[in-house]
Design a protein around this nucleic acid. Sequence first.
DNA 1: TACGGTAGGTGTACGCCGTACACTCGTCAA
DNA 2: TTGACGAGTGTACGGCGTACACCTACCGTA
Lengths: 238, 238
Amino acid sequence: MTPRPEAAPRAPLSRDRVLSAAVELADGIGIEALSMRRLAQELGVVPMALYKHVANKEQLLDGMVEAVVSEIDPPARGSDWQGAVRRRILSARAALLGHPWAAQVIRSRSGPTPAVLAYLDSVIGMLRAGGLSVDLTHHAMHALGGRVLGFTQEVFDAAPDPDPAAPAAMPAEAAAAYPHVAELAMAAAHDGDSVVGGGCDDQFEFEFALDLLLDGFERLRRQGWSSGARRAGDGLIA
Amino acid sequence: MTPRPEAAPRAPLSRDRVLSAAVELADGIGIEALSMRRLAQELGVVPMALYKHVANKEQLLDGMVEAVVSEIDPPARGSDWQGAVRRRILSARAALLGHPWAAQVIRSRSGPTPAVLAYLDSVIGMLRAGGLSVDLTHHAMHALGGRVLGFTQEVFDAAPDPDPAAPAAMPAEAAAAYPHVAELAMAAAHDGDSVVGGGCDDQFEFEFALDLLLDGFERLRRQGWSSGARRAGDGLIA
DNA sequence: TACGGTAGGTGTACGCCGTACACTCGTCAA
DNA sequence: TTGACGAGTGTACGGCGTACACCTACCGTA
């Protein structure tokens, strides 16, 4: 009667259990509050027990990234390259949207994890299949940057406003000092947009920028653009 | 003879001295190694002395951002709006390029500091003066995102390769698993580009993406685009 | 049945971190 | 002369990641 449930004997740890608990905890309390000690406590275990399953906190974060990136839908078939890439990127965005910490963690890693690499590989493949040259594909991937994984590229990481009831119509003194910002904030009155990036329609902003880039790539493809010609100067497009 | 230089009596601290020492130290040892204790030591002072000049580490970081952003050249006059915005953004990039930690710190702040706000205000003003509608300007600013301050938008923050002599031609096994990535890495042989973002010409990539966006804005302006019409779907441009 | 190796969980401890709080000491106005 | 004040100090606390030694339950083998 060794495994008798006299006091809920706690399931044994495993790397997967550690990682998914970490993801869930980060979702709940934020990545900056996620510590090895806090995670251990959540799992009903002493902190050092975690180190039997992950080498250190860095590797824990890597594992969390892998877990999240693996949720991205596989690529769909058919249709034009722009639509295909668009759908894939939007599904990446959807997958990462529930894990606001993921962008920051991925950016902070020094190199890509296998799942990220596989994802990037698939997007590159779609661009190539769409007829973009290696050269153009290369620059397109740089131009997309983190956006390829669905990251928003705001100046600030846009912590959700803790008090959405007072959307801060800009303190009037500030509005005078920064008139153009104030004009934008005023106009974005579809909800209380504070400065830039407060309460706008993130999804629309994301798709706007994405489509602008994809259209640009397609235009360059059609005209056989190559990075050899026309470097600096005014405008890539004649 | 109180201030006699018997042992280099150390200049008194000041907020400015603290901030500029912090900027210099972060440039030297990296932002993650910058601690209040380390900074104090650099200034020949006990850690708590810093707290007479900055409220806490958060405010220290804010002050560092202000210091760096204030280095951005003032806007130039004349010429078309694209050229003007382009030059301003490239000078922001130039200013922040010497402080690789700045992008990360700015992103991690929850709100904009005054200098950042003033800079954004000036860029918005240039777009408006160029004839973009409030609506289009708003979305353009979101599309630019951190790029408006010269941030690169790579998936990874691209720590400089500590061993540039071994540029990692991709381990062959990896090349097989990620063929499209390998193709790109191979082609970007103008130097040892590892994966995506290793050793490419960052300045070119930045200008490529920037010009693509600016051209897109101008195109939308010319056709009187408004976010009211044509939301989701395939392509912003008819 | 006895035994030795091993994998997983524990406990203690170290050196960092940010910073609260009480203090000393030099300067200067009244 | 005194007393307030601002700058720098010293000590201490709670948190962090994790090295290292330990215990213990389980296993295959002899």
